[in-house]
Every structure is written in structure tokens, then in C-alpha cells.
Design a protein around this nucleic acid. Structure first.
Length: 1007
RNA sequence: GGGUCCGUGGCUCAGCCUGGUUAGAGCGUUCGCCUGAUAAGCGAAAGGUCCGGGGUUCAAACCCCCGCGGACCCA
């Protein structure tokens, strides 16, 4: 039985139950023989999936189901990314911790355990959410980045890097979070608007002149080592006056206006290129406050990166800026870093010791002011980097970190991405290429707890280094857990006799997922599945350009000199209806559950799969509900077919005589099939969804079913009827299989409840093969003709609506004026759908022309005789090239020509011509019209009485029987009336108005 | 500041790669129709500077260049 209306929740629970009880997933999983290696990009275990994560997995599931139906047995191990700062921060919040000291005193072991529990709990919650989206993956056996086997895969990679000389420890400026007290990767820095001080400071040269610098980080001045100017830029030496006192200052010539912030007037003494300033020595502005600074020489250096902004002179603190540091390497400048891990000044900062950088900002500004070195103090709003987890503004600090020399691998990486198939193409050729070209060495060390420990041991005595590439080198065999702090207790003997201890750091969490292409199959600990590598297919959002696409490529080049994936589908982001990011602070987050509750899993899937995969998806409730409406139509069409087929105990496979519309819909079906398959080859999932809706709504529901209605209502067994069943069955059967990967629940449900009521089948639709198009059934010419027929019917409707004649009223004739030939074959269809008795096709419908002069044009020529001329031309039946009128020669351009529609006709245009309908109703037509009006009303009353479709009735109609002469049998037949009497209405009685007649109709059950 | 993508009726989008009838859908609006798929369905109408400007071309929503706006990534 097919219930009258589509209830997603109801069929979901039935199908989920069916799948579970019969272990369908397990059976389908092992069905195919062809190998396919898919790697799931592991979602981070935040605890809740959001719209984007849901979309991501739906894409994956659709592809996997498609592959399985094509006899592949794709790997479908789901992954979980479970380490890292985000979880540490969450756990810290739960425990009310403020900093690392709190963790240390709580105990690292307990803390790590908490993190693990938290990650596992979240993983379980998210698993349930994914399952409810009908995602068929191997949920019982996921890969997890926290498992020893997986961590081993990361160690393997780092060992490889070490062996290839790609691992190095070096002093570098890194993004540093003073709250989390750790280095951050580029990818972990989030930019946001922020207010900072903006100050202009005078630095006194040894010769007494001043150089003016600008900075938004006063706290970096204690670490100042140099001033940089651009060698090519023009600088000016200026005498500037303030309160009558003059001093000499230097800054970029084009930026002299800055002086107005402090000086009343000034005069330029000389100008010169920046290179002239090189080597000039100056006094550190806070020399007294920071005595350590006495140890350094301060002088002006040259740098191309200095631009003509602010003052054109840049204060350089080698410890606090990437460019500063690099410049320092070039000039051999000292690195003076007075700020500790927490962002607090150390003892060497002199006066500022123990102040945080924020506190120091104020004190420093005050000191500069006191020393009369501050030219101006302002505020600035600018974009500034923040820690992605705790939102603390990051600082730049020079620290010793572990790096992978990506810069050495760039060439190879660029070469390898050329071999990858990117969808869309520009994801690789433009976006990813750009990112790699700009890639810097990868800082892989983090000074944290919850992560894969760096497997690097260093001898405390001789400094020798040992990189452990395998879990097998760890002395314990049981209860294998490589996490901190236990791993920290492992020591190795050095050749020199000393003891080697592990470097305390853990891996950047991006490194974890970077090894997924072999970590997910347990390599190198297990080798049985490694022949699958590299991945045939992966798909993630475009944010993963810098993330997983990149980390995987880097790690893979290190280990295997080869890209870890063959095809990458890059999908978009989910945004809100206005195209904004969904975020808690904006309050515009839409939960997947919310959507599913409203429209169901299938509609959710079809909705997210309906827009171009690589484009951002602006979530719209309106559109989402529209999908539900469309699926409802699918439901109704199948229910329509089911009602009659089951009434007639239909079995497919009987001899048929296909009529025109049958052949047409089958042609459309095969075309849909072909489009679906070719779209899937390119992973253009959205094209399949679009084609599906177009086929079902436009072709099947709106056109085919109305055309065959009369055929399926026939009482007797007829070939015409069977052919319609046969056709519908084929359409539904194939369509369900085509769409099954996208809308698995409804497809399975109809497979069980519709398809299998009429033919034998497999246990599940997912054991069926994906349909292959039968191109021989595609008939382009027929499709074209039908398209025109549709257009003609629509034009006819339009003409009717102009003439205000209802479709229910039959018309004598329709005249189609067109130069298209061969439409006779669709004449019957047009006639039926337009409710006209006859359709004629002609090249030219004879019409009277109304010819009028264009008075604006002839007026000036003919003057007073224009009226006479108008009368003359109005009698003309045709339009000549030229008219001779009383000695004038009037070209046809001076005339306006209108076509007069013959009396009793109305018309409308269509793509290839015009459609005229004869609007005159003769007696016969009128009687038929009345008959149909009566039928319509009796049907309405039958419905109101809740009569069964097959039940017979007795009808009584209070109307002059002459009005229905010749149509009595028709009425009886249509309404299943055993008797039709023209007398006092009885039974269920209703009074109706048919045009201007009042008619009482009564019906009652026949017994 | 740089890279990539996107910009088409009130809204959501197709078309663009491969230039060529009158730029298509759906939603919404207005008017109507249909009726045993029916707590559905269908049609018609109104509504478009195809972001703006330049170029190439016989011809540009489509190809090229320069702007503007948005998203993502980077600086």
C-alpha cells in the first residue's frame, strides 16, 4: 500500500529499520568487486555536525552509493580528527583553567585523559548524526588520529622527512598565542578587526637628527634593533618648528604631512634616496629603561619591503616580525627577545619586566612622551591575527621550532598537482597552485599536550638527535598509547653514553590528518591495503586548500614523492540566505536536524546536492521546502501508477503497442539516464538532481500522465492500457535507481513497496545496478515535435484565457499557423489537451489586413488629403510596395498594417507560429459543455460523500434534459451512475450554478 | 595589497567552457484553470540596463581588459 501523502519521517523509520534488521549495508558493502580507494577527510570532533559537515558527508555518501551500484567496493572508512588545541581549549574551559600552569598543576596525564574522553564522546555524538543522514560508512570501524596505529603513521612520515634532510630545528618568527603559549601555524590564525594604538616616535641619530617611525605595537620598541628604510624611496631632511623650538627630522618626502601632527611649520633642507641613510647609528629610545640594549649597535638598514606609508621608516624588532627577522639574518642583527611564552616581559626587559605586553604598551607610550620622543598617539582599526581557538591576539615571537622544509619540496608539489584531476579545474590549476607557490616552511611543533608527540629524542650530553619512525622502537608492547606524558618518560641511550630525552613538543594537528591517505589503512604497521594507495577520490570544502589538500600533499611528497590523491572534488561553503557565514555570534546558524525535521532526510540531501558543488550554498528555507513539494509530486505520480496497476494486477513484460507519448517519455527517460551518467563521471552531482526534477516534474507529471489518464481509466483489459502501465513502470523503475544514491530512503521505500509489488527484485535497491542508458530509444525528432506540441497547447490555453473560455468547454477547431512540417502525428495529443475537436496546420491563416496611413509621415506630404488617402488604403486587401495616389508615390513604410483576426477567433503566439481557436460554440458543443459541467459536479459530490472509486450511484439532476441531449450515456459512464434521472433531486443534494443556470443535483448509492 | 570564485526579474538559481532564434526555471505576486494523483495539481500575466565601463566580432549574458560589490584563501 502507498499512503495518500508523503511523510518523510514515516518512511525514514521504516527504511532505517529494514536496513538495520537485514544488515543491508553490510551486504551491499561487499557486493562489488572493483577496487576504489576513497579517503574520508576526517571532521574535527567538535561534538555537533553543522550544515557544511552534513553537506560534505552527503556528497561522499552519494558518490559511494553510486560506485557500489556500479560494482565497485569503495573503501568507506570514516575518519575522526581528534587531537589539537581546539579540544584542549574546550577542556580547559570545562575545568576553568586559564593557562598552561593550571594544566601542569592539574597533571598532564589527567588532562590528556580528559581530552581523550571529550574527543571520544563527541565522536559518538557525531556518528549518530551522520547515521541519521543515511550516510553509509563503516561507522563501527572508523580511523581515529588518536590511535597508536595511526600515530605511528605520522611518526613514519617524520622519520622520512628526517632521512631526506627535510626536518630542521631553527629559530624563526612564529605566530604565537600568549594564552595557549604555543606556536600557531598560518592556518590557525584568524584575522579580525581590532583597535590598537598607532604611534609616531622620534629616534635620535648620533648626529642629533631624528628619524620618525610609526608602529601599532609599542611593546615591540624595547626589542628594537634597527630602522629600515627603502633604498629607492626619496627621503627628506626637514627643519621642523614646535613652540618656537626647531629640530631636524628625517622621513619620506611624500609623507611630510605627518609632521602636522606635532609641528607648526617646517622647511625641507634636503632630499635624497633612502640608500644614503644606510649605516647611520642611533640611540635606542628606551636605552635607560632597558639597559640590555647597551649591548647592541643600532643603525639604519635598507629593505625593499618598506613602502611609502606612514613615515617610510620602519622600526625593526628582529624578535617580533617575520620580515624583521629575515632582515636581521641579512645584516647579521642580534635577536633580542624580552617577551616570554605568556606574553610577559622578562628580567632583561629592565623597567618593563613582569608587565604583560598590553600593560607595557601604556607604560612605554608614557615613557616616550616623557622623553619627548612621541610625536603623536592615535588609535587605529585594522585587521589583526587572532588565535583561531581562544581569539587572543597573536604576537610574533622568535622561538626555536621544528620545521619541514616545504620550500625544498615546492617544485615537486607543483609538478604533482598537475597530475591530479581537479573538480572544478581551477581548484587545482589556480587556487591550490597559488597557495603552494607561496608556501613557507611548515612549522610542525606545538608546545602543547593533546597531540601526537614529536618522535624526536635529543642527547642531553652531546646533543645528538634520534628520530623514531615506528612504534616498535618504543620499549613497551602492551597497552600501547603514545600520548604524553607517558611517552616523555621514554629515554634512549646515546652512543656517547649520555641519555636522550624526547623533545617536549607535539605535532601541529594538521600533520595528523595529513597522513590520512596511509594512516587510515594502518600503513606502515599494516600493509595489506596499501596497494590501493593513492586515493582515487577525495572531496572537501574550499577552505581545505590550505588545510587537508595541502597537508596531505606535503606529507605524501615527503614519504612517497607522489600526490596522495588522483581526483579531488572541491565543494563550497554553507552560508546563510544573505550569503554571510553562519556563526554563533550572528545567530544565523541553521542546524541540519532542524532542516531534516521540516523536510526529511531525502529532501535535505537533494537540496544540498542541487546547487553547483563547488559554489557556496546560500541556505534558503524557501528553496528547501520547494524540494519537498517536488518530491511530493514524485510521490503522487507513483501513487497514481500504483493505484491503477494494482487494480489491474499488472505484471511487467507483456506485449505492448507503444503509442506516441509512450515512446516520447521513454526517449526522455533514456536521455535523463544518459545525462545522469555523464554528469556522474565528472562528479557534477547537481546536474543529476536538476535533470531528475526536470524529468519527473516537467515531463512525467505535467505532460505524460495527463496524456495517458484516459487510457488507464479504461475498464477493459486493453493493449493501450497495458502499454501505459508498462511505460510508467519502466520510467519509475529506472528513475528510482538513477536517483537512489541521492535520495536513498525514498528510492528504497518505493523499491520495496512499488517495484517489488510488480516484479521480482533484489533484497535492496542498492543491490541493483546503476541503469545504463539505452541510446536506441532516444528519438530526438519526436522530442522536438512533442516540445512544439506542448508549446501549441500552451498557446491555445493562452488564447482561451484571452477569450475567457474555460478549458472544460470544448471548441470546434484550432488552427495552427506554422511552417513546421509533420506535426500531424501530434495533432491528436494537441486536440485532447486543448479540448478541441479538430486541429489544423496551415502555412498561412487567411486574415484580413487593416491598412492605415501613418499620419505623422503622410501628413506633411498629403496635408488636407490625408483623410481621403486613409479611406482609399483602408479598402485595400493587400499591401503593395508602393501606392500611387493622385500623383503621389507613397512607399509602404508610410503605412501601418494590422492583421484583423477573423470574427469568432482568438489567437496567441508560440515559438514557431500562431495558434487560433474558434471561439464559436454551436448547440452540440454547448450540450457537451453542459454535460462536462454536470459530470464535474457529480464527481465533486462523490468525493464529498467519500465514495469508493468503483462504487455505483443513482443521480438525479434538475435541469432541462434537452441541454444534455446525446450526452446522457457519457455522463452515466463518467460518474458511474446506474441511473440518471431528470426529476426532483434526492439523496445527497447540492445546488450549483452552471454559468447562469441554477441546477440542483442529487446523488445516492446504488443498491 | 595579492590569488581564486561569484554577480542574470522581488528572492534562489540555470545558461557562459564551445558567441548566433524572442535570456530560461522555481519561489513570490496578480488573474485564472483543472479535478478519482486531490489536504494535491496546472496555466497565463506582470516583472530583466544579464553589476558598471571599454574592447574583440557581422553578432557578446557568454571571449578579452579595467573598475565596483560579495565569498573564500593569503599578505
Amino acid at each position: 500500500m502507498i499512503p495518500p501523502s508523503y511523510s518523510p519521517q514515516r518512511i525514514e523509520s521504516e527504511v532505517f529499520k529494514f536496513w538495520k534488521e537485514n544488515a543491508i549495508y553490510e551486504k551491499v558493502k561487499t557486493k562489488g568487486g572493483r577496487k576504489f580507494y576513497f579517503v574520508d577527510g576526517p571532521p574535527y570532533t567538535t561534538g555537533r555536525i553543522h550544515l557544511g559537515t552534513a553537506w560534505n558527508k552527503v556528497i561522499k555518501d552519494t558518490v559511494l552509493r553510486y560506485l557500489r551500484m556500479n560494482n565497485f567496493a569503495p573503501t568507506d572508512t570514516p575518519g575522526w580528527d581528534m587531537h589539537g588545541l581546539p579540544i584542549e581549549v574546550k577542556v580547559e574551559q570545562e575545568l576553568g583553567f586559564r593557562n598552561k600552569r593550571d594544566i601542569e598543576s592539574f597533571g598532564v596525564e589527567k588532562f590528556v585523559k580528559k581530552c581523550m574522553e571529550y574527543a571520544l564522546r563527541n565522536k559518538d555524538m557525531m556518528t549518530e548524526q551522520f547515521k541519521s543522514l543515511a550516510i553509509w560508512m563503516d561507522w563501527e570501524r572508523p580511523y581515529m588520529t588518536i590511535k597508536a596505529e595511526y600515530m605511528n603513521s605520522a611518526w613514519f612520515a617524520i622519520k622520512k622527512a628526517y632521512e631526506k634532510g627535510l626536518l630542521e630545528r631553527k629559530m624563526r618568527v612564529v605566530n604565537w598565542c600568549p594564552r595557549c603559549e604555543t606556536a600557531l601555524a598560518e592556518a590557525e590564525v584568524e584575522y579580525a578587526e581590532r583597535e590598537d594604538p598607532s604611534i609616531y616616535v622620534k629616534f635620535r641619530l648620533k648626529n642629533g637628527d631624528y628619524v620618525i617611525i610609526w608602529t601599532t605595537t609599542p611593546w615591540t620598541i624595547p626589542a628594537n634593533i634597527a630602522i629600515a628604510v627603502n633604498p629607492k624611496l626619496k627621503y627628506a631632511r626637514v627643519r621642523a618648528y614646535r613652540n618656537g623650538i626647531a629640530e631636524t627630522v628625517i622621513l619620506a618626502e611624500s609623507l611630510l604631512n605627518v609632521l602636522a601632527k606635532c609641528y607648526e611649520r617646517w622647511e625641507v633642507l634636503e632630499t635624497f634616496p633612502g640608500e644614503k641613510l644606510e649605516g647611520l647609528e642611533y640611540e635606542h629610545p628606551l636605552a635607560e629603561e632597558v639597559p640590555e640594549q647597551e649591548n647592541f649597535k643600532h643603525f639604519i638598514v635598507l629593505a625593499d619591503f618598506v613602502s611609502a606609508e606612514n613615515t617610510g621608516c620602519v622600526h625593526i624588532a628582529t624578535a617580533h616580525g617575520i620580515e624583521d627577522f629575515e632582515l636581521g639574518l641579512k645584516y647579521g642583527l642580534e635577536v633580542f627577545n624580552p617577551v616570554d611564552d605568556r606574553g610577559i616581559f622578562t628580567e632583561i626587559a629592565g623597567k618593563y619586566a613582569n608587565l604583560s605586553i598590553q600593560e607595557a604598551n601604556e607604560v612605554i607610550i608614557e615613557d616616550l612622551l616623557k622623553k619627548d620622543l612621541l610625536i603623536a598617539e592615535e588609535k587605529i582599526f585594522h585587521r589583526y591575527g587572532h588565535c583561531w581557538r581562544c581569539k587572543t591576539p597573536i604576537i610574533f615571537r622568535t622561538t626555536e621550532q621544528w620545521f619541514i622544509r616545504i620550500t625544498d619540496l615546492k617544485e615537486k608539489m607543483l609538478e604533482e598537482i598537475e597530475k591530479v584531476c581537479w573538480i572544478p579545474e581551477w581548484a587545482g590549476s589556480a587556487r591550490f597552485k597559488d597557495w603552494i607557490s607561496n608556501a613557507k616552511d611548515w612549522c610542525i611543533s606545538r608546545q602543547r599536550y593533546w597531540g601526537i608527540p614529536l618522535p624526536i629524542w635529543i642527547c642531553e650530553k652531546c646533543g645528538k638527535m634520534k628520530v623514531v619512525g615506528s612504534i616498535n622502537e618504543v620499549p613497551w608492547k602492551e597497552d600501547l598509547d603514545l600520548h604524553r606524558p607517558r611517552i616523555d618518560s621514554v629515554k634512549f641511550k646515546c652512543d656517547c653514553g649520555g641519555e636522550m630525552s624526547r623533545v617536549k613538543d607535539v605535532f601541529d594537528v594538521w600533520f595528523d590528518s595529513g597522513v590520512a591517505s596511509w594512516g587510515s589503512i594502518g600503513y606502515p604497521l599494516k600493509t595489506d591495503k596499501f596497494d590501493l594507495w593513492p586515493a582515487d577520490f577525495i572531496t572537501e570544502g574550499h577552505d581545505q586548500t590550505r588545510g587537508w589538500f595541502y597537508s596531505q600533499l606535503g606529507a605524501s611528497i615527503i614519504c612517497f614523492d607522489k600526490a596522495p590523491y588522483k581526483t579531488v572534488l572541491m565543494h563550497g561553503f554553507t552560508l546563510d540566505e544573505q550569503g554571510r557565514k553562519m556563526s554563533k555570534s550572528l545567530g544565523n546558524v541553521i542546524e541540519p536536524e532542524e532542516v531534516i525535521e521540516q523536510i526529511g532526510v531525502d529532501c535535505f540531501r537533494l537540496y544540498v546536492l542541487s546547487s553547483a558543488v563547488w559554489e557556496d550554498l546560500k541556505f534558503s528555507w524557501e528553496e528547501a521546502r520547494n524540494v519537498l513539494r517536488n518530491i511530493n509530486i514524485l510521490w503522487n505520480t507513483i501513487r497514481f501508477a500504483y493505484t491503477y496497476m494494482s487494480l489491474d494486477k499488472f505484471r511487467p513484460g507483456r506485449e505492448v503497442e507503444l503509442s506516441l507519448e509512450d515512446r516520447w517519455i521513454l526517449s526522455k527517460l533514456e536521455r535523463f539516464n544518459e545525462d545522469a551518467v555523464s554528469a556522474m563521471e565528472k562528479y557534477h552531482l547537481h546536474r543529476v538532481v536538476k535533470a531528475f526534477f526536470e524529468f519527473i516534474i516537467e515531463d512525467f507529471s505535467r505532460w505524460y500522465i495527463p496524456l495517458i489518464r484516459a487510457r488507464v481509466w479504461e475498464e477493459a483489459e486493453s493493449k493501450r492500457k497495458i502499454s501505459a502501465y508498462e511505460t510508467m513502470f519502466r520510467v519509475i523503475d529506472k528513475t528510482l535507481r538513477i536517483i537512489a544514491p541521492f535520495a536513498p530512503i525514498i528510492a528504497e521505500w518505493f523499491y520495496q513497496n512499488f517495484i517489488k509489488s510488480f516484479r521480482d527484485g533484489k533484497e535492496s535497491i542498492f543491490m541493483e545496478e546503476y541503469p545504463k542508458p539505452e541510446r536506441s530509444l532516444i528519438d530526438a525528432e519526436l522530442e522536438e515535435k512533442m516540445k512544439i506540441a506542448k508549446a501549441i497547447v500552451e498557446a491555445g490555453n493562452s488564447a482561451r484565457s484571452k477569450a475567457k473560455i474555460k478549458l472544460r468547454w470544448p471548441l470546434r477547431e484550432m488552427i495552427v499557423e506554422t511552417n513546421i512540417k509533420g506535426l500531424e502525428s501530434v495533432a491528436e495529443i494537441i486536440a485532447k489537451q486543448s479540448n478541441v475537436k479538430e486541429v489544423k496546420f496551415i502555412d498561412r491563416f487567411p486574415k484580413e489586413l487593416i491598412i492605415k496611413p501613418d499620419f505623422k509621415k503622410i501628413g506633411p506630404i498629403l496635408k488636407g488629403r490625408a483623410k481621403e488617402f486613409a479611406e482609399y488604403v483602408s479598402k485595400m486587401k493587400e499591401l503593395p510596395e508602393e501606392i500611387e495616389f493622385d500623383g503621389f508615390r507613397i512607399p509602404k513604410e508610410y503605412l501601418i498594417v494590422e492583421e484583423k483576426i477573423p470574427e469568432g477567433y482568438e489567437f496567441a503566439e508560440f515559438s514557431n507560429g500562431k495558434v487560433y481557436i474558434n471561439t464559436k460554440l454551436d448547440e452540440n458543443l454547448l450540450r457537451e459543455a453542459y454535460a462536462r459541467e454536470v459530470v464535474r459536479r457529480i464527481q465533486q459530490m462523490r468525493k464529498e460523500m467519500n465514495l469508493n472509486v468503483e462504487e455505483f450511484i443513482v443521480s438525479t439532476v434538475e435541469i432541462d434534459p434537452k441541454l444534455l441531449e446525446g450526452w446522457i450515456d457519457y455522463i452515466k459512464n463518467e460518474t458511474r451512475s446506474k441511473e440518471l434521472k431528470f426529476e426532483r433531486a434526492e439523496g445527497y443534494v447540492k445546488e450549483w450554478e452552471i454559468e447562469d443556470l441554477r441546477v440542483k443535483i442529487g446523488i445516492k448509492r446504488w443498491s
